[in-house]
Each structure stands twice: as C-alpha cells, then as structure tokens.
Amino acid sequence: MKKSFITSLRSVGMAALSYALVAGSPLAAMAKPLTVGFAQVGAESAWRTAETESIKAEGTKRKVNLKFSDAQGKQENQIKAVKSFIAQGVDAIIIAPVVETGWEPVLREAKRAKIPVVLVDRGIKVSDDSLYSTLIASDFVSEGKMAAEWLAKKVNEKASIVELQGTPGAAPAIDRKKGFEAGISKYPAMKIIASQSGDFRRSGGKEVMEALLKKYGNEVTAVYAHNDDMALGAIQAIEEAGKKPGTDVVVVSVDGVKGAFEAMVSGKLNCTVECNPLLGPMAFDAVEQAIKGEKLPKKTVVQDKAYDQSTAKDVIASRQY
C-alpha cells in the first residue's frame, strides 16, 4: 500500500516533469531570449531613476537579457556604450540621448549592423531619420505650454517670472523653454525677467534663485523650473529670503516626482506638469515590433498631465517615483 503510494507519487512527478519539458521546449525554440542594450544618461534625478527602474523591470518581465550602461551624464560614454552593444551583437538598442546632436556616426554603425535603435524620452537631430526606429517621449514643448497655461490662470495673466533652465543643449531644456515662451506670448503682462541654468540640479536651482532674488527682490512673482529638483532648490532659496513659496512667489515645474507632490501637499509648490518616466512597456513593445521589421511611427507621444495642490493629496500615495 505504502509502496504503491510512493510509486504513484513518482509517476505524477515524472508526468509533471515531462509535461514541463514538452511545454518548455517549443517556447524556447520559438523565441530565444532577446538581448537588448540600454544606454542610459545617468541617474541625475529621481525621474531618471524611475525611468531606469521601469525599463529594467519590464525587461525582466519579458525575460529579456538587458545590458545596462550608465553614461554619468556624458555623451562620449553613451556613444562608447552603443558601440560596445553593436560589437556584442545585441538584438536592439535603447538610447536615452543626453544631447540632441552628434549621433549620426554611431547610429550609422548600428544601421549597418542591422540593429534597430529605439530612442526614449529625448529626441535627436539627424539628417536621415531612418537611423532610428522610433522615439518614445513626452512632448516637452507641450509640457512647457501646459505649465504656462496653468501659471497664467493662477496669476490672472500677470507675472514677472524667473525661469530656471535645465542643462544648456539638452532637449527638455530647449523645448520646455520654447513651449513656455509660446504659452505666455498670448499674455502681454506675463514676462520672463531672468532665465538662467540650474543644470537640472537642486543645488543649482537654489544657487541661481538666491542670486536672482538679490537682484530682483520683490519684483519676482513666479518661478518656472524645467524640472522639479531645481524648483525644490528654488523653494529653499525663497524661504531663506523670508518669502513664502507657493503664496508670495508662485512656483511651477515639470516632471512630477514624489518630492514635488510632497512640496505641493505642504503648499510650497503650486503645480507640476507630469512627464511620465515609466516608459518600459512602451519601449519594449517598440523594440519587439522593430525586430519583427514592422514599420513604426517616428514619434510615439506619452500623454502628460498637470497636477496642482488640489489634486496632489489624492495621487501622492500612488506615486512610484
């Protein structure tokens, strides 16, 4: 009796094992795991980290062999990483380009090696747009416009604005500036009195804001920062100058990181236009389509949304980054 039980157990085990073998083998034959190289800019902000995490997590979920490279904010490192991906013969390359220009030679190499390239979150300038499959990104110009529209409503179309730009030459800095300028051009009483770069850093935002508050004093009624980190730095500078950020000086920024939501809940930040970093699923959809040889649109736009103090409380708990 006892023996037969063990035998039956064994046979069940065998059956399960053989089923696993049978079920497993055609799957493995159908799709050998993809190898994808991801050339990330760096980890300069919480937003960037969230993007990296999203792409890594989606890669694991789809059982992709993901080769990750952190360029520490430098284009030459990114180009090196892409070259090494090509040398390793990856199936596809994802790039989050640090600046817009200088990509032609390395992308030509990728094209010659027939490796599709998917760009995420920032665009590039190339003479031949067949050099990359698609760009998955938020529209930075429309983010700037949304920030301008929100600010115009908040301050009754009258403001003296300090603009904190991102790193000179970076696509989000250029486009968020362009979009914001286009957005406020409708309102003659809204003008930018100073525009300096805080380099997308918290410390940069604080240092620039300190200097400009000394120069303009009470004249400054609003701050527009190209990312949340600089806005959070500027908020500290405004407080140290004895003013109330969010009340005396209206602060608007872009990105929608968790720190910004916390600042909105405590009333110091007025509005942030979300720029969604969770691009993983879209990026890998595009990678798979590109490998199959499907034609992709040159740009896939990620939908963005403006959050203000009234909506911040409800969404803060659900923020992943």
């Binding site: 902000s45 850093r201 410390s203 980190d229």
Partner: peptide, 16 residues
C-alpha cells in the same frame, strides 16, 4: 555643507 545646504543628499550631482 553641500548636502546640508539643499537638505538632501543628491549623490549623483553633488560636487560634480
């Protein structure tokens, strides 16, 4: 000092 100044440790950018 740099960390205290912005009340945050921004390890990727501080002192860059």
């Amino acid at each position: 000092i740099a960390t205290s100044n912005i009340k945050a440790a921004d390890s990727s950018r501080v002192g860059e």
